[in-house]
Design a protein around this nucleic acid. Structure first.
Length: 256
DNA sequence: GGTTGAGGTGTGAATGTG
DNA sequence: CACATTCACACCTCAACC
């Protein structure tokens, strides 16, 4: 079964989610008032441990608690305002220290090494009119990246990262990855995969034509990758990706 | 146009934990 | 012992200011 292996750095001080959770919404009533919230839900009762180059699934002793809802800063707005431009939740911070999140509406406490999924909720007044749960956006909070390629992708797309580091990462990827199609870009932006899963991202649960688009799609790593260090193990790992690319069953799993 | 400070990032060494 | 966490650090962009 295909599962996301996206990692999100979580610190005790709190760190932003990158890429930012950003949605475009169509189909709201322009003259009605809406508000939006995000909560990050535990996906399962599992805990993940990284050993011998891969994630291992263990049972978690941590209880699943009600997730904290973080409302969009714009509060209540007319539908036409929400649809005017992308809705960004860049003010959300995740922390691995419970006390840090208390009393701070934009801080969310997440337990490291567990799987979570962000869920967008749209309210008309106090009534929930839609929730968008995009499997695509599942991630595991970690205190340090385990997957070097993932770190490289985020570093290359994040302007806060040192320029020389971004350049070095890109050069290493070109030198060590034999075929051009396995550049950092293509590892995460496999075109057939994007085509096959785009419908999931354009949430079609709404027969009423209300549609939620997840904007940073191309920045959100979603590929059945195994940890592929850019250093010594890179060349050994590449054949595994090639096998998966030609594996029809994997395609079906992705679609499901 | 140049400078400065705020806010943000990943890195790597040290330390903690099971 | 291996993996997870913490923390100081260097460096980035951007906006405000002169």
């Amino acid at each position: 079964m295909f599962r996301n292996e996206n990692e999100m750095i979580s610190t005790c001080a709190g760190r932003r989610i990158f890429p930012t959770l950003e949605y475009s919404i169509n189909g709201l009533d322009p003259q009605k008032e809406y508000s939006m919230s995000i909560h990050i839900e535990r996906v399962d009762g599992k805990r993940f441990r990284f050993g011998e180059g891969k994630w291992m699934e263990l049972d978690s002793k941590e209880k699943i608690t009600d997730p904290k809802k973080v409302f969009h800063r714009d509060g209540h707005q007319l539908g036409e305002k929400w649809m005017e431009k992308p809705i960004s939740f860049d003010h959300i911070r995740i922390t691995n220290r419970k006390s840090r999140a208390e009393g701070k509406p934009n801080y969310i406490y997440l337990i490291a090494q567990h799987r979570y999924i962000p869920i967008l909720t749209i309210y008309e007044g106090d009534e929930i009119v839609h929730t968008a749960r995009l499997e695509h956006t599942e991630f595991v909070p970690v205190t340090a990246y385990h997957n070097d390629v993932l770190g490289a992708l985020k570093a290359s797309n994040n302007h806060y990262t040192r320029k020389d580091r971004r350049r070095r990462i890109e050069q290493e990827a070109v030198v060590q990855v034999k075929k051009p199609k396995f550049s950092i870009e293509s590892i995460f932006h496999d075109s057939s995969f994007i085509e096959n899963t785009r419908n999931e991202v354009e949430d079609e649960a709404m027969k009423s034509q209300l549609r939620v688009h997840f904007n940073p799609f191309l920045l959100w790593p979603q590929f059945p990758i195994l940890p592929i260090p850019l250093t010594s193990k890179t060349e050994e790992a590449i054949p595994k990706i090639e096998e998966k690319e030609n594996d029809d069953e994997e395609e079906i799993d992705i679609l499901n």
